[in-house]
Amino acid sequence: MTVSGQERLARAALTRIIEPGDEHGGRWLRECGAVELIRRITTRDGTAEQLGGMTPKRLAGYRLRAESADPGQDLSAVAALGGRFICPGDREWPTQLDDLADARPTGLWVRGPRDLRLWALRSVAVVGARACTPYGSHMAAGLGAGLAELGWVVVSGAAFGVDGAAHRGALAAGGATAAVLACGVDVPYPRGHAELIGRIAEQGLVIGELPPSDHPTRSRFILRNRVIAALTRGTVVVEAEYRSGSLVTARCAQRLGRFTMGVPGPATSGLSAGVHELLRGEGVLVTDAAEVAELVGEIGELAPARRGPVHPRDLLDAVSARVLDALPYRGSVGGREVARTAGTSTDEALGRLYELHSLGFVERDGDGWQLTPRPTCNGDARRGGT
Rank of each mutant, 00 (worst) to 15 (best):
A194G: 10
S246R: 10
A141D: 09
L302K: 08
G61P: 05
Q96G: 03
G331F: 13
T344F: 07
Q370L: 13
V286L: 01
D22L: 09
Q73V: 09
G262I: 14
V362L: 05
E195Y: 06
Q50C: 14
R8W: 12
A140M: 10
E239F: 11
R114V: 05
D70E: 15
P211T: 09
A145R: 05
G144P: 02
L295K: 09
A339N: 02
L9N: 06
G169E: 14
E239K: 09
V154A: 01
A305T: 06
H24W: 15
V127A: 11
R199K: 09
R280Y: 06
A10F: 13
E337I: 09
S213H: 14
Y329W: 10
G142P: 08
D70P: 05
F85G: 04
V180K: 14
Q203K: 02
L97K: 01
V206D: 13
R122D: 12
G234I: 01
S345V: 10
V126S: 05
S358K: 04
G21E: 05
E49P: 00
D214C: 11
V185I: 07
V284Q: 08
W119V: 15
R168K: 06
G142H: 01
S246D: 06
A303N: 04
P190T: 11
R191H: 12
E277M: 12
F85D: 08
G33S: 03
R280I: 06
E19C: 03
V292M: 12
G270T: 03
S219N: 13
R374C: 03
Q203P: 01
L108C: 14
R226K: 00
D99A: 12
T42W: 08
Q73T: 14
D102G: 02
G297K: 01
R220S: 10
S137I: 08
R27T: 07
A273D: 10
A166Y: 05
A159R: 13
F85L: 05
P328M: 02
Q6A: 05
G83R: 13
H193G: 11
G270L: 12
A48W: 15
R44V: 07
I86L: 00
A12P: 07
L316D: 03
D186A: 11
K57R: 02
R130N: 07
N378V: 12
A131W: 14
C377T: 15
L51N: 00
W369F: 13
T372H: 12
T232Y: 07
G262R: 06
L302R: 11
C252R: 06
A170H: 00
T95L: 15
L327N: 14
T106K: 13
A10Y: 14
W109R: 04
R307M: 14
Y329H: 05
G379A: 08
